[in-house]
Simulated assay, not measured.
Amino acid sequence: DQAWGLFQASVAAHDNHVAYYGPTEVTGHPDDKWGWAVQLALSIKNIPTGAGDVINISGVYTDGATRYNFQNLAGGSYSMFGSSGIAYQSVGFAYAPDTVFTSAGGGSSQESVKTWGFRGAYTHNWDPYWNTALYGAYAQAQFGSLAKTSLCGVGGTFVTGVSQAGVTGCNPDFAVAQVGVITRWTPVKNLTFSADLNWTHLDQKYSGTVGYAGAGATAKPAAVYELKDPDTITLLLRAQRNW
């Protein structure tokens, strides 16, 4: 940590201790599997655009420790809906667990899910009370052969409550890209108001159409949906008081 900025390297270990193959403990469970994550981060200070301006960037790789990449800004589970010209609506599915295992054939060991990603932001201070940050992020999840075979192979289930009849491509790998801008106003010390506008794009690898059974949580009816890469825009307004 110097006047010019900060360089950081970090590692983490994660013990994947999972539940049972069946509904009760007598069915057994896979052995624990250790996952890990490594991250590099760089902060550049004293840039010529203004006092206090800063550029922050970081990159991460995980193996069986997905949450160190898919954090609050980019969640690990998606079921996003949109418009479609060939079906009732479109839908994009994505899931990012730490590991995958199956109960078939007496039960498998855990297979880790690998992810990588990076994020960066530039913050400019307009004056002592106002600043704006432009940020972006990209993350990708990659599944192994066990996950792809059990989800997409012969006799696979694809997604719970979904018919595979119209699926032309099945691959659980996916990527998430995000761009956002946040403006903060601090009228007095320890009181900040902010407005955060964010665009998220889900690049999922499924294609075709599916017969979706519907879900009460989304209020979507049972119908045929097109598998499509969705986009979403969110606006978060926040007031924060520190003591």
Rank of each mutant, 00 (worst) to 15 (best):
A3D: 13
G5D: 00
N16V: 03
V18W: 00
A19E: 13
A19M: 12
G35C: 01
L42K: 12
I47A: 09
P48Q: 06
I55N: 01
N56A: 09
R67T: 14
Y68M: 06
Q71E: 13
Y78I: 11
F81G: 12
F81A: 07
A87G: 08
A87Q: 05
S90W: 00
S90N: 07
A94K: 04
V100C: 03
S108A: 06
S109Q: 15
S112T: 15
K114F: 09
G120K: 06
N125P: 06
A133I: 01
Y138M: 10
G144N: 08
S145Q: 13
S150R: 12
L151S: 11
C152W: 06
G153S: 05
T160I: 10
V167P: 06
T168V: 02
C170A: 03
V181R: 01
I182P: 01
R184V: 08
N190R: 08
L191D: 00
T192F: 04
F193Q: 02
T200E: 08
L202H: 10
V210R: 01
G211Y: 08
A215P: 04
A215W: 12
A215F: 14
A219D: 14
A222G: 13
K228S: 14
D229T: 13
P230W: 08
D231N: 14
L236N: 15
L237V: 13
A239L: 03
Q240L: 06
N242A: 14
